[in-house]
């Protein structure tokens, strides 16, 4: 059994075997369910979470399907991405992630050893974050009907109060880290250097994949002052800011967004704007101006040493929903919402 066969997804013995080998045997007993609930300790149609011993007020749920080509990249793989991505979505809604469901769809013929690395990475993230993997699904698609692998994760979290993103007039925007690393790496691999994996390792670009759970104490402390929180994945920070401006009817002015030198150089090489590249381990917040400085300092104390203020939210009568960027030289331009595919340009 060196590669994936259609029978592995047929619900029979082979599937039971592979699930037990790939997943069940690797999740700690304690993390196979939420305390006093039901999970993959007794694989059933669904999982059960007892609410009676939980004091928090909201259940936060987030689900996302992950496809990434190639599945392995510097800094992680589709497995770590799938776990981290949904955890971060829950954290950015103000929730503490407690349980997860996963759904893995894999192409017939996919090498088993690679699949195992992917699943291990996913389980590893859940384990480190103390998130119970309480259920899931596993399917195999005939060769050619799927490009290698697709993972969907659903993460459940608990929050005292959910963060609903409506930035307020006067808010200050804070970013936790450099942005665009993940998008740059994936673009790098797709633009013809996928076969140069060894060089990439020595290169200075790698995905920024990391769970944002370390931000939870900060979110807890400033809960009433945070008016929006988001991790800028697809569409990059430009996407998040434009959505916020549009949804709140305010105007956003940004400047000096932290972008790693390597990412900037690489983006310049392809003629793309790093403001549109995805991050998988950064967060943007819109917080009340009064607490902004303190918020940034606390964030830095939590280990996000690159955290900084990047802009302001302003009320505008005529220009609701726009994002304005102050450029390096002090000029102004509009920062447009992302459109279409990002393709490199010649000119």
């Amino acid at each position: 059994m060196k590669f994936i066969k259609l029978s592995h997804g047929s619900g029979g013995v082979e599937m039971g075997d592979i699930l037990s080998k790939l997943v069940f045997s690797k999740v700690d007993e304690k993390l196979k369910k939420v305390e006093n609930g039901v999970g993959i300790d007794l694989p059933d149609d669904g999982a059960a979470i007892p609410l009676k011993n939980i004091t928090n007020d909201y259940i936060i749920l987030s689900t996302d399907a992950y496809t990434v080509n190639p599945p392995f990249f510097p800094g992680g793989n589709i497995g770590s991405l799938a776990a981290t991505g949904s955890i971060n979505d829950v954290v950015m809604t103000g929730g503490k992630p407690i349980a997860a469901l996963d759904s893995i769809v894999v192409e017939e013929g996919y090498p088993l050893d690679q699949l195992e690395i992917i699943v291990d990475s996913m389980i590893d993230v859940f384990k480190k974050e103390g998130v119970a993997l309480i259920g899931g699904d596993f399917k195999v698609m005939p060769k050619g009907n799927l490009d290698k692998i697709l993972i969907t994760t659903t993460v459940l979290g608990l929050a005292k109060k959910p963060i609903v993103d409506i930035p307020k007039d006067g808010d200050v925007l804070v970013v936790s880290d450099f942005v665009g690393d993940h998008g740059a790496v994936i673009m790098l691999l797709q633009m013809g250097v996928a076969d140069k994996a060894s060089e990439l390792k020595s290169g200075r670009l790698s995905s920024d994949i990391k769970p944002l759970t370390r931000l939870l104490p900060l979110i807890d402390r400033f809960l009433d002052e945070i008016n929006a929180a988001r991790d800028p994945t697809r569409g990059g920070i430009a996407g998040v800011l434009n959505e916020w401006a549009k949804n709140s009817g305010n105007l956003i002015v940004v400047e000096d967004v932290p972008i790693r030198d390597e990412v900037r150089r690489y983006a310049e090489m392809l003629g793309i704007d790093p403001m549109y590249l995805a991050s998988e381990g950064a967060a943007v917040f819109s917080v009340s101006a009064e607490v902004a400085e303190e918020f940034v300092e606390d964030m830095r104390d939590l280990g996000f040493e690159n955290a900084k203020i990047i802009g302001k939210v302003k009320k505008s009568e005529k220009y609701k929903g726009f994002v304005l960027k102050k450029t390096e030289i002090g000029g102004f331009r509009l920062l447009e919402p992302p459109r279409g595919e990002i393709v490199p340009r010649i000119c």
């Binding site: 790098l188 250097v193 140069k196 020595s202 670009l205 390597e262 090489m269």
Partner: peptide, 8 residues
């Protein structure tokens, strides 16, 4: 090297 450490 364009500065990202990859040779092209």
């Amino acid at each position: 090297d364009y500065g990202d450490g990859v040779l092209r």
